[in-house]
Design a binder for these strands. Structure first.
Length: 846
RNA sequence: GCCCCUGUGGUGAAAUGGUAGACGCGCUCGACUCAAAAUCGAGUACCGUAAGGUGUGUUGGUUCGAGUCCGACCAGGGGCACCA
């Protein structure tokens, strides 16, 4: 027998056996509990790389493990197939987005098949197929009827040279990525979904998501951003009677107000710009910046004095100047604020820049008024009010309540709950997306496409020789008759945000071939919600929040009877790799380079030097991708799975290195030799120790898998195989050795499924390991009778002793004080105190 | 700018507030070999001959005891509503 494992032949053979037996295809059944595990579906960007692989491997482990535990496991796969890259590819390569997308799907599916995943392929979906998106067109019409969808004007990034809308990603340093033109903010009428109607519900729901990482729950909570504050109006000094509505979360600091600022998009600013060139050019300057909050917030804070002033509501005769400021967002609150520089850093920076007053009104608990001053750092901590008339000596909370009370009593203001969350704009001025099923009629307005005319499909005869949505210029597609009045009308040419498709796909998998509706209620009732969702942390807020909203919206329309789509969530880290650049500054792929004479990398072919760059997320643009095929050919999928799972904790990034995959491959062979060369006729060895190791490993690895500690579980597996190797070499008892090998194989099955099948068959089993159950740990063989106790003197380790498990504290203390190393460290002094932590540690304090 | 996360040997990482470095990679030495690869065995945080001391990004605190909890800071990463 060869001492090398024939990985290529073996992996292909078992993949075929799984496929032939259709063991991963599932239907609803009453005799087994269901388990739905889902990996976030991929965008078909081109080739599958080991970064994708990590995501699907984790779902695969869960699927195989839960299967072994007796669950009826649903583990589906599909394609998030609409999106911008397809249109970019269409422009660059003179192809059609559909052609490019479907070719990528075919290539990536082939790679996925190489992975031998426990996927029910009969449920495969692609979101760009009309039989998928027609259902979401129906949902949109339902949302419209339910008052959850509406139109309003909102800003987009406008490229004035290409005359097209740009995505934030396509704006680089404030300029269009292709044209180089300075981007402008421009208003367009667009469709919105009323996610804010569920703001409180989405917030409350977070507390029930116990299976989600704390950090994701926190991020969602902050994103929704519920705040209690005050809405009130300032009176303009002139024209008399005109008022400006403000929202603030710090009404307590009103006596420290030194200016008022409004958004460049505020109606007051707009009105002023008509007669004031200065205002007009300032607003124009503010708009020469994209719509992205990150850009707006990091831009230099600038303001423009409007010359208007308002009266302070509580200080007679005091007026505040009104500025237009680029950092005030029209989307939040009322688009107008008052600035209290002493207690808000942004206001302070602004005040220092424009020479405005800084009036401290909250004093820290440990200071008094004479010594407390604000320089360049605002004070945002707790304290008591001063310089504040009737609020003096109150706490911040008391002062907030008092100010709100006074405004409410005077009927000039209102305590208000506000959310940072904004309604979801779903209109995209793009071709490669789901058409919004609306017809615009001069007479009737926005009219829903009649349901019997769904789906509204994309026209196929389009070209991408100029920027923008080609449907807009299509000769006939737009022109229709109004369904209501029959007159000439036009189709909506915008398509949905691609988050629309990914908000409900988890339900489509439950009933993927249903032509009548998106899913049958009873099928979703059976499988949903998803028991374990797995994907990148980059989706922590938007995708996951949209899907949570969509589920509630579907419930409101009668499609479902639950709120939360994902019971548990795991956010896995990325696969990262070194990046390389050639002499010409262009990215090079790892396949393009090799080690030169002096050990440094050179470009293959011409031996020109290569610069090694940062270690970054694998991405097509940086070329630092390792394709799946090359890995599977050289080392097999099991070795790749092993590396990806064992090298880092799953929530952290893992670096793909050549050395790592070779090491994993060696271990695959070592396991193969251990089991195939084992002699089950031995009579010797320490059978008790071996049995403890076997059952201890089963126990611990089971716990590790339950907790997603795959790296630790694999470390336990290695400990067991090390022990079995020693036991085997010592001609250990054959029955125990077999018991150990069988446990090892069943434990490795979720991690290295192909090798496990091969070894399981070698051990004489007729049934595949994929259909066998998870091993049970025998409680009698878990743990041991003695424990090692550490002894510290004043917190420093001085000795370790073996003691019987659960020994009385007084006996343990006696044994510890009797140790010579302990006595030496005590230097003859008496113990002041002895802390005994049973079975762990004893600390002697002298 | 705002929200969230991460930081431990040469390196990937372990460690319910209780023996820091499990399990690997690499390296060193040895066995096998004509030789190499593969495989097997021993060693491997740092300083020190040793006794011992020092060590978890920096810094301060809480505690009998801190990688772990709290405060301040530094560095890196993710997200910020039209990338997916």
């Amino acid at each position: 027998m060869s001492d090398r494992y024939n990985v290529k032949e073996t992996e292909a053979r078992w993949q075929k056996a799984w496929e032939d037996s259709k063991c991963f295809e599932v239907t609803e059944r009453a005799d087994k509990p269901k388990y739905y595990t889902l990996a976030m579906f991929p965008y078909p960007s081109g080739k599958l790389h080991v970064g994708h692989m990590r995501n699907y491997t984790m779902s695969d482990i869960v699927a195989r493990y839960k299967r072994a535990r007796g669950y009826n496991v649903l583990n589906p796969m599909g394609w998030d197939a609409f999106g911008l890259p397809a249109e970019n590819a269409a422009m660059e390569n003179k192809t059609h987005p559909a052609k490019w997308t479907y070719a990528n799907i075919a290539a990536m599916k082939q790679d996925l098949k190489l992975m031998g995943l426990a996927i029910d392929w009969s449920r495969e979906i692609a979101t760009c197929a009309p039989d998928y998106y027609k259902h979401e067109q129906k949902y949109f019409l339902d949302f419209l009827k339910a008052g959850l969808a509406y139109q309003k004007e909102s800003f987009v990034n406008w490229d004035p040279i290409e005359n097209t809308v740009l995505a934030n990603e396509q704006v680089v340093d404030g300029r269009g990525w292709r044209s180089g033109a300075l981007v402008e903010r421009r208003k367009l009428k667009q469709w919105f979904l009323k996610i804010t109607a569920f703001a409180d519900d989405l917030l409350d729901g977070i507390s029930q998501l116990g299976g989600w990482p704390e950090k994701v729950r926190l991020m969602q909570e902050n994103w929704i951003g519920k705040s209690q504050g005050l809405k009130f109006t300032f009176e303009f000094t002139k024209p008399k009677g005109q008022r400006l509505e403000i929202y603030t979360t710090r009404p307590d600091t009103l006596f420290g107000a030194s200016f008022v600022a409004i958004s460049p998009d505020h109606p007051v600013a707009q009105k002023l710009s008509k007669n004031d060139m200065g205002v007009e050019s300032f607003i124009e300057k503010c708009r020469k910046i994209g719509t992205s909050e990150a850009v707006i917030e990091t831009a230099e804070k600038i303001g423009h004095d409007t010359g208007l002033t308002v009266n302070h509501p509580f200080i007679a005769g005091k007026t505040l100047r009104v500025f237009i400021a680029n950092f005030v967002l029209m989307d939040y609150g009322t688009g107008a604020i008052f600035g209290c520089p002493a207690h808000d850093q942004r206001d302070l920076d602004f005040a220092r820049k424009y020479g405005l007053d800084v009036i401290p009104v909250v004093i820290p608990p440990d200071k008094d008024g004479r010594e407390f001053a604000i320089d360049m750092e605002a004070y945002t901590g707790p304290g008591r009010l001063y310089n504040s008339d009737f609020l003096n000596a109150m706490t911040i909370d008391e002062a907030k309540a008092e100010v709100i009370k006074r405004f409410e009593a005077a009927k000039t203001g209102q305590g208000t709950t506000l959310y940072r969350l904004r309604d979801w704009g779903v209109s995209r001025q793009r071709y490669w997306g789901c058409p919004i099923p609306i017809i615009h009629c001069q007479a009737c307005g926005a009219v829903p496409v009649p349901e019997d005319q769904l789906p509204v499909t994309l026209p196929e005869d389009v070209t991408f020789d100029k920027p923008g949505n080609p449907v807009y210029n299509h000769p006939t597609w737009k022109q229709v008759k109004c369904p209501t009045c029959g007159k000439d009308a036009e189709r909506e040419t915008d398509t949905f945000d691609t988050f629309f498709e990914s908000s409900w796909y988890q339900f489509r998998y439950c009933d993927p071939h249903n032509a009548k509706e998106g899913f049958a209620k009873d099928k979703v009732k059976h499988w949903a919600p998803v028991d374990q969702y797995i994907g990148g942390v980059e989706h922590a807020v938007m995708h996951l929040l949209y899907a949570r909203f969509f589920t509630r919206a579907l419930k409101k329309c009668g499609y479902l009877d639950f709120d939360e789509p994902f019971t548990a969530l795991f956010t896995q880290g990325m696969v990262v790799h070194e990046t390389y650049k050639g002499e010409d500054g262009k990215w090079l792929s790892p396949a393009d380079i090799e080690k030169g004479h002096n050990g440094a990398y050179v470009k293959k072919g011409d031996n020109t030097p290569v610069t090694v760059g940062r270690i970054e997320k694998m991405s097509k643009s940086r070329k630092n991708v390792i394709g799946l095929e090359e890995v599977s050919v050289n080392f097999g999928i099991d070795a790749a799975r092993l590396l990806i799972l064992s090298d880092s904790p799953p929530e952290r990034d893992v670096e793909w290195t050549e050395g790592g995959i070779e090491g994993a491959w060696k271990y695959v062979n070592r396991l193969w030799r251990l089991v195939t060369l084992a002699d089950f006729n031995g009579k010797g060895g320490d059978t008790d120790a071996m049995k403890r190791k076997i059952h201890g490993t089963i126990d611990m690895m089971t716990q590790d898998l339950e907790k997603f500690h795959f790296n630790k579980g694999i470390a336990r597996l290695r400990e067991l195989s090390n022990a079995l190797e020693d036991f085997s070499a010592a001609k250990g008892d054959g029955a125990v050795l077999r018991e150990g090998c069988e446990a090892l194989v069943r434990l490795m099955a979720p991690v290295m499924p192909h090798l496990a099948e091969e070894l399981w068959a070698h051990l004489g089993h007729k049934e595949m390991v994929v259909n066998s159950s998870w091993p049970e740990a025998d409680k009698d063989w878990i743990g041991s009778d003695t424990v090692t106790i550490a002894i510290q003197v004043n917190g420093k380790l001085r000795a370790t002793i073996q003691l019987p498990k659960d020994l009385a504290a007084s006996d343990a203390e006696k044994a510890a004080l009797a140790e010579t190393a302990v006595q030496k460290a005590m230097e003859g002094k008496a113990a002041k105190k002895v802390i005994v932590v049973p079975n762990r540690i004893i600390n002697v304090v002298v």
